[in-house]
């Protein structure tokens, strides 16, 4: 056990599984880097350096740099998964799903169903998402609700370093296709992470804070913000339960409904665009199954329905902030019904 960054946690998970299982290969643009170039080999290790060091240990046969050609290599990962490998493909930014989505949602996600249960597709797609690095509209989106919508895919949103390592190992050992969303603003966050390999089951929410006054459901980086808000409200005697669902598909509905049954108040924090996102999904879940428990209208804290802007002032206004979350919790507590 030692303190590790989110980046190290992801890297360790890959290393553990590549050592454990020869069928695990990684592929993507610049996952090693420098291939065919006159300078340094293993120059990049991906844009975040997550996969640096894997090529020297496992060789070019299992750490596969690709051309900038997402349709081909994401599809190749799907085909390889259906024929015996356990590929981990890196889609550098989830925004690039636009050039390869067919291979994910029409092919990998549906093999098992279309083939009558006679296919196994142990594919992991790792991808960066989220705003905060001034990367603007085509490199900052939180597109996980689109993947959550697709039957056959599992969707994972690790909110911290410990979560990232255990969930990625679970994803690699899982026999279904998994899309693993890494928030680009979390890579330097640190916490205690075991040195050994471990797994965190999918569909099991994590209750990061417990309190009986309000429930905050948050995803990915927003869990960090929700925890900050819960800690700050505790100083005022307001107790919040913070639920990190960890996976949006499968979703631990019971954890959310049980908590709302206790608190009667719900704030959902979702970095995805506001229409048909996880916030609306969970608000609908609670409206359908826990309407009687609600003491106040559900509040959804999301960005506005706009692309992610560039200028720091604009992006800061765009991203859900701890201040907005706190205001929403105070709002649901003040509501009379």
């Amino acid at each position: 056990m030692s303190r590790k960054t989110y980046r190290q946690a992801v890297s360790e998970a890959l290393r553990h599984e590549m050592r454990r299982d020869l069928r695990v290969v990684i592929m993507g643009e610049d996952v090693s880097g420098g291939l065919g170039a006159p300078g340094e080999q293993d120059a990049w290790g991906g844009p975040q350096g997550v996969t640096k060091g894997l090529m020297p240990e496992f060789g070019r046969g299992r750490v596969l740099d690709t051309p900038i050609s997402e349709s081909a290599f994401i599809g190749a990962a799907a085909g390889a998964a259906a024929t015996g490998l356990r590929p981990v493909a890196e889609l550098m930014f989830v925004d690039f799903m636009g050039v390869c989505f067919d291979q994910i949602f029409n092919q990998a996600a549906k093999f098992r169903y279309m083939f009558g249960g006679r296919a196994v597709t142990p594919l992991v797609i790792r991808t960066q998402y989220g705003a905060g690095l001034r990367a603007a509209s085509q490199h900052s989106q939180s597109l996980y609700p689109i993947f959550t919508h697709i039957p056959g895919l599992k969707v994972v949103l690790p909110s911290s370093a410990y979560e990232a390592k255990g969930l990625l190992i679970q994803a690699i050992r899982d026999d279904d296709p998994v899309v693993f969303f890494e928030h680009k603003a979390l890579y330097d966050d640190e916490e205690e992470v075991p040195d050994e390999a471990y797994t965190i089951p999918f569909g099991e929410a994590n209750l990061t804070r417990e309190g009986s006054d309000a429930t905050i459901v948050a995803f990915g980086r927003m869990v960090k913000f929700a925890n900050q808000v819960a800690d700050s409200l505790e100083q005022d005697g307001i107790g919040c339960t913070v639920i990190d669902p960890r996976t949006t598909s499968p979703l631990d509905s019971d954890a959310i409904l049980d908590s709302v049954a206790e608190t009667g108040r719900l704030v959902v924090v979702d970095e995805a665009s506001p229409r048909c996102n996880m916030a609306t999904d969970i608000a609908a879940l609670v409206a359908e199954h826990a309407f009687g428990a609600l003491k106040a209208p559900v509040r959804m804290i999301t960005p506005p329905h706009t692309p992610v802007p560039f200028a720091p002032e604009l992006e800061d206004a765009y991203i859900p902030s701890p201040a907005r979350i706190e205001e929403a919790v105070r709002g649901v507590l003040a509501a009379k019904r």
């Binding site: 410990y162 255990g166 075991p194 050994e196 390999a197 471990y198 797994t199 965190i200 994590n206 209750l207």
Partner: peptide, 16 residues
């Protein structure tokens, strides 16, 4: 407590 449960789960999830 939840933390006690989480601590035990963290241990139990480790390979081996």
């Amino acid at each position: 407590s939840t933390e006690m449960v989480n601590d035990v789960l963290k241990y139990k999830r480790i390979d081996g």
